[in-house]
Design a protein around this nucleic acid. Structure first.
Lengths: 72, 72
DNA sequence: AAAGTGGTTATCATATATGATAACCAGTAA
DNA sequence: TTACTGGTTATCATATATGATAACCACTTT
């Protein structure tokens, strides 16, 4: 897998898990303490996330980090 | 879990998986195309890894990304 | 002794993730 | 119409991860 495809897969996974919880991008962003624009960037797979950011998102979604990488 | 404990847990996990494969830090670093000093820093949990770096390490160890976060 | 292996720590420059702001679009409600 | 919600994109400053180098330690081998 190419690295950009990995970013996109992670973004898609976050989007899927977020929608599963029925919350909006801006809600999730608020729970993570950052702006909705950044959440959009993340879900679009436009950034090479750090573990800290993944951790914030997982905490906000109340899931484990491994849930993000399930089947990746 | 505090964020620094997460970094340390990930570093420990990488160390464990590396030793399981019976390779040295410097070998793993070489496979990842970076210096052994950086590998030491990573295993010590002194850095907030990016996905790209995790990906390089997993590729070098021939494991899945989710293996790094197993039980974390 | 000298050389090699495995690992740690400090330091630096450079690339880039993050956090923030603003402008924008589409759809819906008042 | 206006206002609100949900999302996207561009841009910027600042913080920091990465990549690299060097010095160092302990241990083993020659």
């Amino acid at each position: 897998m190419k690295i950009n495809d990995l970013y996109i897969a992670i973004g898609n996974r976050i989007k899927y898990l977020r929608e599963e919880k029925g919350i909006s991008q801006q809600d999730l962003a608020a729970r993570c303490d950052f702006e909705k624009s950044n959440m959009s960037r993340i879900e679009a797979g436009k950034t090479n996330l750090t573990i800290k950011t993944v951790y914030k998102i997982c905490s906000a979604l109340n899931i484990k980090i491994s849930d993000i990488f399930y089947d990746i």
